[in-house]
Amino acid sequence: MKPPPFKYHDPRTVAETVELLARNENAKILAGGQSLMPMLNMRYVQPDHVIDINRVEGLSYIREAGGRLEIGAMTRQREIEYADLVARRAPIVREAILNVGHRQTRNRGTLGGSLSHLDPAAELPLVSAALEATVHVQGPKGKRDIAMAEFPAGYMSPSIELDEMVIGVTLPVWPDGHGYGFVEFSRRHGDFAIVAAAVLLDVEAGGKIKRASVTVGGVGPSPVRCRDAEKALTGEKGAEAAFRAAAETCRTIDAMEDVYAPAWYRQHLATVMTRRAMVAAFGRAANAR
């Protein structure tokens, strides 16, 4: 289990990286390496060029601008986990990240890497979808923005060109005191989820749900926004029955299956995980009490 031979590049700038991508066929970007390296070791991928972006300047940051959070593609998951700003402005991201792998993998793993790899059960694409993030990519023709809803082109394939790379993400921030819940079902701690759910609730004074975001991962080929559940929640007051009914709408999501988890099980878990995430989110909302 050793990587196949390849030509190694370690550019210092995004422009250089994009140029390398454009010039070389069958190239792979090496970010945190927590997904690419196992695939290389098992020779599931055999790139001719590996472009290591760990030395590229300016891709690691967490900042607030214009009421939004901006996070660089090479920001390590650990930095996001420990960032006060994230905990205050987008606490669901921190909640999700505690479920991402283990301390050792979060030290290396990056936000951009996780989004580009786009595992259907990965936590970071899921919260990005829940928050309606914007993904910033750069290619030879310059930069462009992709709404997270449009980012997945299919199973584990982002809608970016071969010569483009993810450079950062902008996350809209929910109002102070919003409720958030991230619940996942995995066989063991730190494993990829079988099904995970992210719920955000904006609850107005008096306890009525003004706005809801319900997203599940691990069921479809990429995170699925559950619009029916969101509609069902809006205007509700957080009764168990309302959550149950709203969550139940997730049972009809078109589900993947494999030998470990059949489609019906994923659909069923989608209803349970979303309901639990709703309960958690509502419980955290400042106005719920």
Binding site: L30, Q34, P38, V50, R103, Q104, T105, N107, R108
Partner: peptide, 9 residues
């Protein structure tokens, strides 16, 4: 910081 050395070059 911990890292898995089998996942690095």
């Amino acid at each position: 910081r911990t890292a898995r050395s089998c996942l690095m070059l």
